[in-house]
Design a protein around this nucleic acid. Structure first.
Lengths: 235, 235
DNA sequence: CCCTTTTCACCTAGGTGGTAAGAT
DNA sequence: ATCTTACCACCTAGGTGAAAAGGG
């Protein structure tokens, strides 16, 4: 029989097997997905700002006022339920290649075309939600937002950002991990997490927007892009 | 003898008895303290923004774009050492009245005068550092900054801010609390924390600055007040 | 008179896509 | 030709003390 921590029918720990995640802003994600979501990736963590050959008289590098790496928009946000309110959980995200292709955008037909095999995959990083670890009760209290997550195409990034290849497609994944207090918790690692993938959140990584309708939807829906909106304000 | 968790000579748990905290920006604190540090307290959490009698046609209150409660300047920041890197700690602050007096500022003599007994003390709140709980290693890795801590004179504040009486003197206190994993940890609560008070951080709560030299030092040293600086820039 | 509240211009800090130049 | 980078104006968000208005 199963002793100690109870296991659900799925072979998962009871602390995670009932966990459920609802994607927030689902209609916005679907609107982007219908057009083919694009997410900007840039280089420029701190190291990028070094003077090419060093510059005498200046101690250290002129650090940029803010990191130039880009967040996702829409932001990945979920409403959680089914957690044990008093148990500890870590929440994290990763990004998996949707295929092994490289793409290019055909402007004349306004469509994406496969253009060869994928480049070598970047080191597979994960992004821990900065509030981790926290109790189930706290995670379920309100929407969990991954708005600190940043994307880069810099293979040498040392700021812990998510590294993606431009012109490749990705599927964001979301993981709920129960922090098992048992001494030999490693033995149960495979039972202690539950993962979620929302197909409407898949996207193409780009260094500049290709599809003009994506650009327009970003401008229309991202508050930080308000400066590029034409007249017609809609409240 | 002492069984289980070891206790130091102080009767404190070994996890906290070696903890040490160094106040950051000590010279700036001392400069303020020499003049008599003042900290602004305001009302205006969200509830303050309600329309007096309610306004038809508007769903809910017009929430302010940002809370009007004020942070401390200088910010209370410490560098920690002597923690157990792998143990969990909660860090928090509270504020204790330095005496039972009310004060007024005599402009002619540029000095503070006692002016009667203290008003009833506000409910004694604490401010948990938002990264709590975290491992000793993480707390010790870099300076711990209480820059999210906000002060208010609103006795009915429901945003969890620190409530202080204007024209009263306070001593900030800093507490390191070991998160005891034992079932009966309540029994050891008195052994599991260590507190720190830095005399140079004591201050007078005010609704508007009284001492002009304090105002000038705030303007000179707080980046957010740069707009009020006269010429002479000093890098 | 003393103290508090409100509103404001002016900052810090950082998230947008546009644009032109650069790289391959 | 295609893709990437650097810099920019223009936003959001929010932390300053000044000044005027308000209240006892």
């Amino acid at each position: 029989g199963w002793a100690g921590e109870g296991l659900g029918a799925s072979g998962k720990n009871q602390r995670v097997c009932h966990a459920a995640a609802r994607l927030e802003m689902g209609s916005l994600w679907k609107e982007f997905n219908r057009l083919g979501t694009e997410m900007i990736v840039t280089k420029a963590g701190r190291w990028e700002q070094e003077w090419p050959g060093g510059l005498p008289g200046l101690g250290g590098n002129p650090l940029p006022s803010h990191s130039l790496c880009r967040r996702m928009f829409p932001t990945f946000q979920v409403k959680l339920s089914g957690l044990d309110p008093s148990a500890d959980y870590v929440l994290l995200m990763d990004f998996i290649p949707l295929d092994d292709k490289r793409y290019r955008y055909a402007f004349h037909s306004s469509s994406w075309l496969a253009a060869g095999r994928a480049e070598p995959a970047a080191p597979g990083r994960v992004h821990f939600h900065p509030d981790s670890p926290a109790k189930g009760a706290q995670w379920m209290r309100q929407i969990v937002s991954f708005d600190k997550l940043k994307l880069t195409n810099n293979l040498l990034d040392d700021n812990g950002h998510i590294i993606l290849n431009s012109m490749h497609r990705y599927q964001p994944r979301f993981h709920v991990v129960f922090v098992d207090p048992r001494r030999d918790s490693e033995r149960f690692a495979h039972q202690n997490f539950k993962s979620f993938s929302f197909p409407e959140t898949q996207f193409m990584a780009v260094t500049a927007y290709q599809n003009h309708r994506i650009t327009q939807l970003k401008i229309a829906s991202n508050p930080f892009a308000k400066g590029f909106r034409d007249g017609d304000p809609e409240p």
